[in-house]
Write a protein that binds this DNA or RNA. Structure first.
Lengths: 265, 265
DNA sequence: GAAAATTAACTGGTATACAAGATATATTAG
DNA sequence: CTAATATATCTTGTATACCAGTTAATTTTC
């Protein structure tokens, strides 16, 4: 027993040992590994954006070959990007046949709305308790900015400000992880949202609803804030069947994607 | 104009055209592509299980080389599996240095508990409304099974039955996607849970709590069911700092993982 | 001896080549 | 002309080779 240990120790000094024990980069200290943007990340972000903005329509083929020459990289990083999109539920691959932009499963949209409501509820409640006065002022500024975008009729900027408002609530609630989850489920609804025609007077309405939420938060009335937020989110609940009829190829009834949405277990 | 169309049509019949327009496998019809289990899937599932069960401790190195010879496959599928685990927040890679089982960020555990509560809340509420009598009977059977496992002292089987109970609620609520999300956040807590010593009398307590939830559901009292479920889940809220002191290398204070948990946007 | 510079052998990221299955076109049979 | 068969050429999945950065052991320097 002791001898084998000696042998091992001897060998350790004799033969060049490959990096003691492959120690992790950082124990409890918070060392952050600077991860240079890999090629696969670039492809991923671009594709992700293109799909979410409906630039790439549901059902459209995703050609690996085309992407490789488009980005001037090999198949490997392209493939990694595609696989990540599969994980996100934005892309489907038919094993030896082809890869396509995933259609929007109606059931997923329905559940995503419910899930978002639940997550935003706990978030706004915590934010009502934890937000500082400066944070609330910050939110007022964001709403004001959103008002200006509404006046200018800039729908894209308006939506970005909308995102910023909800993000600031999550930040005040100190729920960065839950915010990531909210974003995740939003993606599932985002494409569906893009199909809705810009409803007349919707933008000012949103500004009003946001203001009501914030007022309740500023008054530290959590229940009221939650109620206003729920009312706000419920406005998204439009009649889905209409869109299914308009773009039948963009949706699926059978939620075959459900199983892939999260690969857990 | 008409001429060019003719040319195109002519070329279509002359030159062999590679698969007309690369049509998606199935439009709105619910064709399900049978996806044969790829090698990367096998590696993924195994690693996933090993990490969640703490068989692979946080901080432990994940050697691609070793896995390739262990499974007799090349680096490609191994790499795919590892990347999926990164997406799950279960492993971290240091670019040109090494890959390691991710440590458990305390903030993620905290948020995961909150998120799960929020999601289980809407789930049990919907289930109270939608569950059939047969489904409720089924749940009673599951609880009974859990009781038997508790009596037998089989902790692993007990936990599986626990999972089954919550899954059946989600099924009754018709929220398969939300259930996937719940599972996803559970994973973050699961490793932490495994560290807790089997608390004396915990198992019978869980059975009692489950029964209370189900009784409220059977009585169609949604608010009560939600309340019982929340009480049940709050029991998991143990003092985390204790575990941080016991296994300091298993946890991180700085939630560097938060950003990677979901790669959204 | 101790500390700085060197170096060898690891790592993950990428490129490329090959294998195997799927599908629309072309061909053939009736 | 229609329907069944054949086949060419796509596709994704996998294997392998190469590159560049990192790290720990070694060597050198003082």
């Amino acid at each position: 027993m002791a001898e084998s240990e000696t042998d091992a120790a001897l060998e350790n000094r004799t033969r060049r040992k490959p990096r003691a024990a492959n120690a992790p980069p950082a124990a409890s200290s918070g060392i952050r590994v600077r991860s240079a943007a890999k090629n696969s990340d670039i492809v991923y972000r671009d594709l992700h954006k293109a799909i979410v903005t409906m630039e790439l329509a549901p059902g459209a083929p995703v050609l690996e070959r085309k992407l490789t020459e488009q980005y001037g990289v090999s198949r490997t990083p392209v493939r990694e990007a595609v696989l990540r999109l599969v994980e996100d539920g934005l892309v489907e691959v038919a094993p030896k046949s082809g890869t396509f932009v995933a259609r929007i499963p109606l059931s997923v949209v329905r559940e995503a709305l419910v899930a978002r409501r639940a997550l935003e509820e706990v978030t706004v409640r915590a934010a009502t308790e934890l937000s500082s006065e400066s944070q609330i002022m910050q939110m007022r500024a964001i709403i004001q900015q959103q008002q200006e975008m509404a006046d200018a009729g800039d729908e894209e900027a308006f939506h970005q400000a909308d995102d910023k408002f909800h993000a600031s609530i999550a930040a005040a609630a100190q729920y960065p992880g839950i915010w990531k989850m909210i974003q995740q489920v939003r993606i599932q609804v985002e494409r569906y949202r893009r199909l809705t025609l810009p409803q007349n007077g919707r933008m000012p309405m949103v500004v009003k609803e946001h203001t009501e939420v914030l007022d309740a938060m500023a008054a530290r009335e959590a229940d009221a804030a939650v109620a206003r937020m729920n009312e706000h989110l419920d406005k998204l609940q439009l009649d889905i069947s209409i869109f299914r009829d308009l773009w039948p190829d963009y949706f699926t009834i059978d939620p075959s994607l459900d199983e892939k949405l999260f690969a857990g277990k």
